[in-house]
């Protein structure tokens, strides 16, 4: 069984700059981390591997060269292998172009086709883009089942049973393998790097894959391969005309609040 984890390096804070011209995000090496939900996906992959004989966890990321830091961290946390899709040509990819590249990488790593017991895991969404589109898009391109918003996974032979959290409750979904599963925070509590993992991460070579390696042309990836374009970036009107009161013993602040709510028609 091969478990592939798609992970994205994201800014540690939401302090990201945007290239006003292309509308794409400028990523610098500063304070980048593994997308938190992808860390849950990785922890789940490791958990499944540890109960499954001969299972292997491979972390895959697409990003600038410094995204290899996130992959080293993944190895320190317990991944067996890691590969990085990195090349100028990938820059500016939207979710569809990213998904095409990742799907191609998965097929290539699996030797032409995902195996009958293979599983692809990723976070339900990333904290920077927040689209949640890459997981399902990868599954559509690979033509394999997808289960989204998952908080529990049980593996059976050639199938998984997953708990999917939806608005009104919980769905128990059975899907055949290979499949893509996107996870939510409830699934587990990610662990910490081990000493042996850290040592392994230091010495480990992380292969870098280019569009050419995947047989992708410049029309398939990057801005050219992306159907969407950011045409404008602007700041929303954030500051409101705040009415400020100070609490006092006479209770005027609360009275003012209640009349304010009455005026707005919310009580």
């Amino acid at each position: 069984m091969n478990i592939y984890v798609l992970l994205k390096q994201v800014p540690g804070t939401s302090d990201v700059k945007m290239d006003e011209e292309t509308g794409t995000m400028i990523r610098t090496e500063h304070k980048n981390v593994i997308n938190p939900l992808d860390e849950n996906a990785l922890a789940e992959a490791i958990r499944l591997r540890d109960v499954m004989p001969e299972a292997k966890v491979t972390a895959i990321s697409m990003g600038p060269p410094h995204a290899q830091k996130a992959l080293r961290e993944a190895i320190a946390l317990g991944a067996d292998e890691a590969v990085l899709l990195s090349h100028r040509g990938f820059g500016g990819s939207d979710t569809l172009a990213t998904s095409k590249a990742l799907a191609k990488a998965l097929v290539t790593l699996a030797g032409g086709k995902l195996g009958k017991n293979d599983l692809v895991l990723c976070g339900e969404r990333a904290t920077d883009g927040e689209t949640g589109q890459v997981g399902p898009m990868v599954s559509a391109i690979l033509d394999v089942p997808v289960v989204t918003y998952v908080r529990k996974i049980d593996c059976e032979n050639h199938a998984i049973v997953a708990e999917r959290v939806v608005e009104e409750g919980l769905e128990l979904i059975k899907a055949s393998l290979p499949a893509v599963v996107t996870v939510i925070k409830d699934i587990n509590q990610p662990g910490f790097p081990t000493l042996s993992g850290k040592l392994k991460a230091k010495s480990r070579e992380i292969p870098v894959i280019t569009p050419l390696d995947l047989g992708l042309s410049s029309d398939d990836v990057g801005l050219q391969g992306s159907p969407t374009r950011v045409v404008k970036v602007f700041r929303p009107r954030l500051s409101r005309d705040t009415i400020m009161c100070r609490q006092d013993s006479a209770g005027t602040a609360v009275d003012n609040l209640i009349s304010f709510l009455e005026e707005r028609g919310v009580v």
Partner: peptide, 23 residues
């Protein structure tokens, strides 16, 4: 942009090979 919409739209967009904007 519900659990249903956010699941089905990326699938259909990828099948139609077109762009999708979330949320």
């Amino acid at each position: 942009a519900t659990t249903q919409g956010r699941t089905i739209m990326p699938l259909v967009a990828a099948k139609l090979d077109t762009g999708l904007t979330a949320d």
